[in-house]
Design a protein around this nucleic acid. Structure first.
Lengths: 192, 192
DNA sequence: CTGCTACTGACACGAGTGTGTCAGTAGCTT
DNA sequence: AAGCTACTGACACACTCGTGTCAGTAGCAG
């Protein structure tokens, strides 16, 4: 068995990477094995063999997307000392607003919404997991006394809400100046 | 022809209402005519007759959901004089956070995300339209000198981002106290 | 060469999809 | 009574879907 987590095997990660690119371009909503297989130069048979089922493939793709997401989050975390929510939010927004990340973020939005409507299956817990991922990393950015206690939790909840709300706006309107100005306005408010 | 907009006909609105309830409970993602028809006590044949196609049905359902959305927005608008963004945001959040509106808001999130990924077809422009709807009504809540000019636009963009970001969090975590506290924190910041 | 493991191709099955066709029936207007 | 319009039922067509089956082949270990 070369199914999932046990040593993904070269061919498997290669195909996953190709499938990931395909999904970034076409969305997950009406993903279908046959068109996907053709696009990545493979066959449904092989996809089934490597990922067990369509559900397995989708799970692997969502995990792949989450890896991309965690990669930037880790760059925030690795600072030697907490940089504070304001600076962290500013950096995260710069990443979110970059044009080249739109496909990933659209995919993220799709998976998030779907996991809300259909809490079972391959999508299960995706929304919840990403909220926790982000809140965790924002917590790590807060200085020590602020971080603990529920006031700190409220602060990072607000920071996350601004970032994600702004992201939704940006994805729909593509009006980067207006949305970025709104985020910066919020950061200015926080500074006092 | 009793197709769409030209006088919806009693039977049509009756079935649309039933289908809307069904979709609120089951989501739009894998909506299928036969199960839907059975659930609402009709047949695919009739649905096709009344709505022309599945796309037509979906369009009608999205329009129906938008009507629900616009209904609350109008209650804000009808105030004799502008109430300001702070008060408006507070009221809107009270509505968003109410438990009984979750199904509608989940449906909204689903439609929004899907219209981002698949900008053609029945979903076209849904995300864009709702952003504009909300920004318009928030603009109407702003006092006169503030409303015009791009600073006003930035202000309401931020207000909208907070509301929608908080909504995303709430839908995923169901942690109303934390999220409501974050929204109120933002309102407190705005007050100065 | 033998065997073993990883991988792949061709094909079929059964279920579910949206939609089209043909024939109705109920209720109203004239 | 006639006729028109709105609506409905039964059924079939042409797909596409995920998945299963059976037979392979390439590469490497012994």
């Amino acid at each position: 068995m070369s199914r999932r987590t046990p040593t993904p095997s070269a061919r498997q990660v290669e195909l996953l990477e190709a499938a990931y690119r395909y999904v970034l371009a076409h969305g997950l909503a009406d993903l279908s094995l046959r068109p996907l297989a053709e696009a990545v130069g493979s066959s449904t048979r092989v996809l089934m063999f490597l990922f067990g089922s369509k559900d397995g493939l989708v799970r692997a793709l969502l995990a792949r997307a989450r890896d991309d997401e965690l990669a930037i989050l880790d760059r925030l975390r690795q600072a030697d000392q907490p940089i504070g929510l304001v600076l962290a939010s500013g950096r995260v927004w710069a990443w979110l607003a970059a044009e080249e990340h739109r496909p990933l973020l659209r995919l993220w939005a799709e998976a998030y919404a779907r996991s809300l409507v259909e809490p079972d299956g391959a999508w299960a817990g995706f929304a919840r997991a990403t909220v926790d991922d982000w809140l965790d990393v924002l917590a790590a950015c807060q200085p020590r006394p602020e971080r603990d206690g529920q006031d700190g939790a409220v602060r990072r909840t607000l920071a996350l809400a601004v970032l994600r709300g702004a992201l939704l706006d940006l994805l729909a309107t593509d009006d980067e100046p207006r949305v970025t100005a709104a985020v910066h306005r919020h950061l200015a408010l926080l500074r006092g």
